[in-house]
Design a protein around this nucleic acid. Structure first.
Lengths: 242, 242
DNA sequence: CGTGAACTTGACAGAATTCAAAGTCTGTGG
DNA sequence: CCACAGACTTTGAATTCTGTCAAGTTCACG
């Protein structure tokens, strides 16, 4: 539960600049962005960076670590909307409503960059390029959420899990890790809540995948052994390999 | 299949101004918006206003009529992402990717307002209020899509259908119609594709609702007789009234 | 170590799809 | 105006999938 020490990074030398808001900003504008709106902060595991229902004040960029976005379901359970990794922006869905739509909970000790929104709005009024950038990010998130919605609505359980594993692997790969061998930060319960399945189903499916030689799994360590096979499962209309 | 005649409306006297992009714009700015970016157009039933995969060029505001947003599923079927009614904006998810994410097909003869995006961007650079408005609309759409995703992922079939009917009714009500008695513009197949169910399930559920006195249905005419009961079904963790 | 949480596995029940068939509506052409 | 063909809708029976309940196992932390 220790707070990791803050890195001395600035936007100019941030690994994730290309993914973040000030992408494409010139040197002077970048400095101004950083002075006006960017504040680094360490976050301990299990700590909540944004709270669903709380008034919206700032966006958050993930610099390191991992987060889950969740909220209480009407029936008492918990729904997980997604997982955020370094380079991802949190809170985009709060700008319009004025309140955060979900809790952002750290799955590991992390570092984030807080971006107060009033300052960002002021800056965007002076720098249309920044406003364009935000519009593109918002729109891209919207498109991505639609993908997610369609997939979770239509796919069967094995397809969902296979896709999530491939997605996570791909994101680790993009960030300099291994796309086929990684450590899950989240519990089976979190996986199940994201996939709209039960914990038992997730466990069963992992065992089935393992038995079929698609992957190796030991606790939270995952190794994707047959990504082609997993892609086939993810794309299949049904799954019937026992 | 006739093209309806164009109404002589302008943004200034448009019924849906409050929902649309130029909401809150002052008189002069509103004129400028209208001159620069707004173009009215009639659309016949079954006509496609936006095509998934085609390069993004303009947003579309629905003035009258109704649309479905759909796209081809990998397995050959069709997925319906949502239904658009007067006052709704189409194409918001295309700004970031640069391509439309789905087909927008008219379910009835309709009138739309095309808003070329390059002109809008130019105007937004001069009028930060317009840029803020777009950001809020985008963010609100994102939040709404998340709601939809969670609901479709977690709810059972009867809940989904009940919710859709209440939602459609509510939207008709907001637009001056009856919230409890209306004509569906879409086929059972469209309903099923939206709810991620089969046509048979939709049909069965409608029959069940009818038998339970929750609604009356004759072809595409719907009358919600017991909205409280429907809300109960929509909220219930399970449904067991045979 | 030991205790509690997390995870796995099995048997059963309920839900939704699939397959199959009958019935109804729409609009197109005679 | 009516008849007909094709699309749309409803209903039934059997199958498959996933959740529920229950028990046992492993893991992590004190």
């Amino acid at each position: 539960m220790n707070h990791p020490s803050l890195p001395p990074a600035t936007c100019a030398n941030c690994h994730w600049r290309a993914l973040c808001l000030p992408s494409g900003l010139a040197g002077g504008a970048l400095d101004e962005f950083e002075r006006a709106v960017s504040q680094r902060r360490a976050v301990a595991r299990h700590e909540c960076v944004e709270t669903g229902g709380a008034p919206f004040g700032q966006l958050h960029a993930v610099l390191s670590g991992q987060f889950k976005l969740q909220r209480a379901a009407p029936d008492g359970g918990v729904q997980v909307l997604g997982f955020a990794m370094p380079g991802d922006l949190l809170g985009l869905d709060a700008i319009g409503p004025g309140r955060y739509g979900s809790d952002a909970v750290a799955l590991s000790d992390s570092v984030i960059c807080a971006i107060p929104y009033p300052g960002l709005e002021t800056l965007m009024a002076q720098q249309p390029a920044l406003a364009r950038r935000l519009s593109h990010l918002l729109s891209a998130s919207l498109a991505q959420r639609q993908e997610q919605m369609l997939f979770l609505g239509n796919a069967r359980a094995p397809q969902r899990l296979a896709r999530l594993l491939l997605d996570l692997g791909g994101r680790y790969g993009e960030r300099g890790g291994s796309a086929t061998s990684f450590q899950l930060c989240m519990s089976r319960e979190d996986l199940a809540a994201y996939l709209a399945l039960t914990v038992e189903s997730v466990s069963r499916l992992l065992s089935m995948f393992k038995q079929n030689g698609l992957l190796a799994v030991s606790n939270r360590a995952i190794e994707l052994r047959d990504t082609a096979g997993l892609r086939a499962v993810a794309a299949a209309p049904a799954y019937s390999a026992n």
